[in-house]
Computed example of a mutant assay.
Amino acid sequence: MSATPVVPRPESAETPAAPTAPTIGLLGTPPRVRSGWRVFPARVGAMCVVELQKLRHDRTELYTRAVQPALWLLIFGETFTRLHVIPTGGISYLDYLAPGIIAQSAMFIAIFYGIMIIWERDSGVLPKLLVTPTPHSALVAGKAFAAGVKSVIQAVVVIVIAALLGVAMTWNPLRLLGVVVVVVLGSAFFSCLSMSIAGIVLTRDRLMGIGQAITMPLFFASNALYPVALMPGWLQAVSKVNPLSYEVDALRGLLLGTPSHLWLDFGVLCLAALVGIAAASSLMGRLAR
Rank of each mutant, 00 (worst) to 15 (best):
G253M: 08
L235N: 05
D249M: 06
G148H: 02
F145H: 00
P31I: 01
G36H: 02
R56M: 05
K143H: 11
S2H: 14
E14T: 13
P69Q: 09
I101K: 13
L218N: 02
R38P: 00
Y113H: 14
E247R: 01
S92I: 04
T203Y: 00
L218T: 13
D249K: 01
L255E: 11
I214E: 12
H84V: 00
A279W: 08
I102C: 14
R56A: 12
G100V: 10
V179K: 05
V181A: 13
G142L: 02
E247F: 00
R32I: 08
F266W: 05
T29M: 07
E51H: 12
T215C: 09
I153D: 01
P30Q: 09
A21Y: 05
P217Y: 07
L244E: 04
T79E: 10
F76D: 10
L251P: 11
W37P: 04
S12L: 11
H261V: 03
L73R: 01
W119E: 09
L174I: 15
G186R: 03
L27T: 14
F220G: 00
P19F: 01
L287E: 06
L139Q: 10
Q68T: 04
T170K: 03
A278R: 08
P30L: 12
Q154F: 05
L177S: 11
P16M: 06
H261R: 14
A288R: 13
G114D: 02
W72M: 15
Q212Y: 12
F219R: 09
I111A: 08
A46D: 13
R43C: 00
S222D: 02
T132Q: 06
I200T: 11
A213M: 02
R175F: 05
T132R: 07
P30K: 09
R43Q: 12
G209A: 15
L256Y: 10
L97I: 13
L73E: 12
P31Y: 01
S123K: 03
I91F: 12
V167D: 15
R32E: 11
M284L: 15
M208E: 11
L218S: 08
L74K: 06
W171Y: 13
D249I: 01
G77L: 04
V201F: 12
F189D: 04
A273M: 03
I117H: 09
L130Q: 07
K240D: 13
Y96F: 15
F108K: 00
S92N: 09
V167N: 14
L26P: 07
L255N: 15
V67P: 08
G28L: 09
A141I: 00
L274R: 00
M231R: 11
V157F: 13
N242G: 05
T60G: 04
R9C: 06
L94Q: 06
I86W: 02
I161S: 07
V49A: 03
F112R: 08
V140T: 00
G28S: 09
M195K: 03
V180N: 04
G89N: 12
F189M: 04
I101P: 15
V228L: 14
T15Y: 01
P19W: 07
P5I: 10
N172F: 02
A188V: 04
Q68P: 00
A147N: 13
A250S: 05
P5C: 10
A103S: 05
P227E: 11
E51I: 01
P173M: 06
P173K: 05
E78G: 00
G209K: 04
M195P: 11
G28I: 03
G186H: 07
L185M: 02
I101C: 14
L94R: 03
D205V: 14
A162C: 08
L225V: 06
M169I: 13
P30W: 06
I210R: 02
G211A: 03
